[in-house]
Design a protein around this nucleic acid. Structure first.
Lengths: 348, 348
DNA sequence: GCGGGTTGTGAAAACGCTTGCTCGACAACT
DNA sequence: AGTTGTCGAGCAAGCGTTTTCACAACCCGC
C-alpha cells in the first residue's frame, strides 16, 4: 500500500504486476488485454488467471495517453428536463455498458460560449466518439468533428447535417398517421402546432400533416397552423389562439407531447371537455403521456431504441473508422389514448 | 500535422510548445497552469499569452496520470425517467462547469452485478470525486469509498450513511406542512401513501405527517396509510385502496408527485372530481406537476439547488480532503395548486 | 539440414503531464 | 566578509499503458 499525491491510498495493480505473476513480460499482458498479436494460448491463460486473481483494473488514462482507446463516449444534450432525453439515454447507457464504455455528459445550455473548447477537449483523447441528441447550432462543431474524422452520431436531427450518420424516427409518417386518424374520426378542421422550424423533425411532422390533408381531399388552412418550440408554453399559446378562432378546429395536433399538455390546459381553461369538445393528439409518447388524464393519444417514437441504435452505430464507427455513414429511420406508431373522438357534429 | 495511431489527425499543442514560445521550460508552464510554486510574474504573463495564442488545451489523461487531477466527477443515478433527477443534474452541471469539471454518468440499473468494478474504475484516477443521487444498496461501495478517502457526497439520502457528507431537503417539515395545510382546510381523515420505506426521506415524510396529525389532535388511523415505492402504479394502487375504504378519507397525501398522479388517476376512475370530492397533495414539485390539470398542490424540493450545493461541497472536499463531512438540509416549500379544497361536509 | 517464413516474446520508446529535487542568484542577516 | 534564507526556474523521474522493433525459436519444404 502506498499513497499517491492525492493523499488517497491505492493498491493499484498494473500490468507489470500481472506480468510478474504470470511469468511473462508486461508487453505480453497488454497483448492479451487488447487481443492483439500472437500470444501462446498457454501464456494467455496464465495472464487471464493472474488478472482475475489480482483483480486487475485497467487504467484508462494511461491507455488513452499511450494511444489506445479511452473507452469513453461523450453525450451532448440540451437538457434532461422532460424525460424525452432520459429515455434515449437509457438505451445508450445500456448499449455502452455492454461494450464496457463509459459516458461523459455535456449539456449545451451551459456551453453557449465555448462550444469549440468542449469539442477540443473531447477530441483530444478524452473520448473515442460523440453522441448528439437534437443539437442546435451544431454546424460549427460538426464541421470540426468531420475534419478530424472524429466518430459521431446524431440522434433525432435529420435535415441539417446531410453528411453525418444519424438515427431518427419516421416523423413524416407519424405526422401523416396521426392526421389520418383524426380525419378518419370525422374531423375536417384540424389545428396544428409546429415544433422549432429549424429542426428537421419538426418540418417533417408538419409535412406529414399536410400530405394527409391533401390525400384526403381536405383544404390546407394556414390559419390552423401555429408555430411552437416543443415546450409547454407555446403549446398553451397555440391552443388559446386556435380556440379563439371564429371557425375553431375540432381537433389539435401538437408536434410533441409537452405542447399537447399545453393545449389540454388551454382547452380546459375555456371550460371545454377533452375529447368531447376538442380532440388532442401529441407526438413522442413520453412516459408522462400515460400519466395525464385522459391518457394522451400520441405518436410513439421508439426513444430507447433510438438511443440503442445510435450507440451501436457509434461503436461500429469507432471500430471501423472508414465506414460509410448511415442514416437510419425507425418507425413510429400511433398510440390511441383517450384524448380523441369523433367531432360533435359527426356524433349527432 | 501528424497522425496518431487512431488515424485521426491532430495538431496537439503541448506544454512543451508553450514553453518554447514563452522562453521557459515546460515545467514552468505546468506551474503556471496549476498555480503552483513561485513563478516570476513576467514569465507567467508570457506563458499565459503563449497559451491563448497557440490555443492550448490541457490533456486531462496525462494530467491525471501524472498524479494531478482528472477534472472529472462521477455521478451515480438510478434512472433519468421522471425529471426529478434531471433537475438535480442541471444544478450540478452548472456548478461543475464553473469549476471546469466534467461529468461522467453512471446508472445503477445497469450495474447491479459489478458495482465494485465501477467504484474501482472511478477511484483509480478516472474521477476526482463522486456524487450519488438517492442510491440504493450503497453500503457496499460507500465503505470502499470511505476507506480510500475518496471524496463523495450523497444527495437526498439521509438516514443510511450516517458518516458521509450529504445534501437533502427538509422532508419531515415538508410532510408536516402539507398535512397541516390539509387539516387547516378542514380535513380530518387524510390518507397517506409512503415512499420506499428503506429510504430515509420516505420515513421522514411519513413522520412529518404523523406529527402534524398528533399536534392537531387528530387520531392516527393505520388503515389510512398505504405503502408505495415512489412510482406511479403504487400511487394508483394506494389510491384505489383508500377509495374503497368504508370510511374513505377526504384527502390523500402522496409521498411524491408521481404517486400523486397515480392517485389522481384512481380518483377519476371512480368518477370523482378533484378537488371537490378528494383533495390530493404530492411532494417534489417536478416540472410535470405544473403541467397536469388541475395543477398539483405539492411540497417543493429545491432540486436544482440541492444539486448545486452537493457539487460545491464535493469540490470543496476535493480541494481540502481532511475536512469534516457536512450534512446539509435545504428547506422545502408548500406550493398551493388546484388539487386541494375544503372537504364536502365542511363546505356545507 | 539449410534458407525462409511464421509465431511468440521482450526491450524500450513514446504519450503529455506533475512534482521532488537541485541549483544559481540575490538579499538579508550575523 | 561569510552565512543563511528565499525565490525562480530547470532537470529528470515517474504515472500505466500501447506499440514498434528486434530477436529467438520453431516448422516447412526442398
Amino acid at each position: 500500500m502506498r499513497a499517491n499525491n492525492r493523499g488517497q491510498s491505492t493498491d493499484r495493480i498494473t500490468i507489470i504486476d500481472i506480468g510478474k505473476e504470470a511469468g511473462v513480460s508486461y508487453a505480453t499482458v497488454s497483448r492479451v488485454i487488447n487481443n492483439k498479436g500472437n500470444v501462446n494460448p498457454d501464456a494467455r491463460e496464465r495472464v487471464l488467471r493472474a488478472m482475475t486473481q489480482l483483480g486487475y483494473v485497467a487504467n484508462t488514462q494511461a491507455r488513452s495517453l499511450a494511444g489506445g482507446r479511452s473507452y469513453v463516449v461523450g453525450l451532448l444534450v440540451q437538457d434532461l428536463g422532460t424525460g424525452y432525453t432520459g429515455e434515449i439515454i437509457r438505451g445508450m447507457d445500456d448499449e455502452l455498458a455492454k461494450a464496457q464504455y463509459n459516458l461523459m455528459l455535456f449539456t449545451t445550455h451551459r456551453r453557449k460560449v465555448k462550444e469549440s473548447l468542449f469539442v477540443q477537449t473531447l477530441t483530444q483523447g478524452t473520448a473515442d466518439g460523440l453522441l448528439l441528441i437534437l443539437p442546435r447550432n451544431a454546424e460549427a462543431y460538426l464541421e470540426t468533428l468531420r475534419r478530424r474524422k472524429f466518430p459521431y452520431v446524431l440522434v433525432d436531427h435529420q435535415g441539417i447535417d446531410e453528411l453525418g450518420p444519424s438515427v431518427g424516427a419516421s416523423n413524416w409518417q407519424g405526422g401523416y398517421d396521426a392526421t389520418s386518424y383524426l380525419i378518419g374520426l370525422g374531423h375536417k378542421r384540424i389545428g396544428f402546432i409546429t415544433g422549432t422550424p429549424e429542426l428537421g423533425c419538426a418540418v417533417r411532422r408538419l409535412d406529414g400533416y399536410k400530405a394527409a390533408l391533401h390525400d384526403h381531399g381536405l383544404p390546407l388552412d394556414p390559419n390552423l397552423i401555429r408555430e411552437g418550440d416543443f415546450y409547454q408554453p407555446t403549446g398553451y399559446k397555440g391552443g388559446v389562439d386556435l380556440l379563439n378562432l371564429p371557425d375553431r378546429p375540432t381537433a389539435i395536433f401538437a408536434s410533441n407531447d409537452m405542447m399537447a399538455f399545453g393545449v389540454m390546459e388551454a382547452v380546459r381553461e375555456q371550460g371545454l371537455s377533452i375529447p368531447k369538445d376538442m380532440s388532442i393528439i401529441g407526438f413522442d409518447d413520453i412516459p408522462m403521456a400515460a400519466n395525464v388524464h385522459p391518457r394522451l393519444t400520441t405518436v410513439r417514437q421508439p426513444l430507447e431504441q433510438m438511443g440503442r441504435v445510435a450507440t451501436t452505430m457509434l461503436l461500429d464507427l469507432i471500430n471501423n473508422p472508414d465506414q460509410q455513414p448511415e442514416k437510419i429511420e425507425l418507425p413510429t406508431r400511433l398510440i390511441v389514448g383517450e384524448t380523441c373522438c369523433a367531432p360533435a357534429q359527426a356524433r349527432k
